[in-house]
Simulated assay, not measured.
Amino acid sequence: MELVTKSKVNIEGKFLNMQFVDELKARRSIYSLGSDVAVSEEELVSLIKEVVRESPTSFNSQTSRVVILFNDEHKKLWSFTEELLKPLTPEAAFPNTQAKLQGFASGKGTILFFEDQDVVKNLQEQFALYADNFPIWSDQASGIAQVNVWTALAQLNIGANLQHYNPVIDERVAQEWGTPSNWKLRGQLVFGSPEAPAGDKEYMNDEDRFKVFGK
Rank of each mutant, 00 (worst) to 15 (best):
M1G: 12
M1E: 13
L3W: 07
S7N: 12
N10G: 02
E12C: 04
F15G: 07
L16S: 10
M18H: 09
F20A: 14
F20P: 04
V21Y: 14
L24I: 15
K25P: 14
A26W: 10
S29A: 14
I30S: 00
S32C: 11
S35M: 15
S35Q: 11
V37W: 14
E41N: 15
K49V: 14
E50S: 15
V51H: 05
E54C: 13
N60P: 03
S64F: 06
V67A: 11
D72F: 05
L77M: 13
W78H: 06
S79E: 15
L85D: 07
P87H: 09
E91S: 09
P95K: 06
N96A: 14
K100L: 07
K108P: 03
F113I: 01
D116Y: 09
Q117L: 09
V120G: 00
Q124Y: 08
Q126M: 14
F127W: 04
A128M: 13
N133T: 05
N133M: 13
F134V: 08
S138Q: 06
D139W: 00
Q140A: 14
A141P: 00
A145N: 11
V147P: 06
V149Q: 00
W150L: 01
Q155I: 03
L156Y: 12
L156W: 09
N157Y: 05
A160C: 05
L162D: 02
Y165E: 00
N166T: 07
A174P: 00
Q175E: 14
P180I: 04
W183G: 01
L185D: 00
L189E: 03
F191K: 04
E195Q: 15
K201A: 06
K201W: 03
N205T: 06
R209A: 01
V212G: 02
V212R: 02
F213R: 07
F213Q: 01
K215H: 14
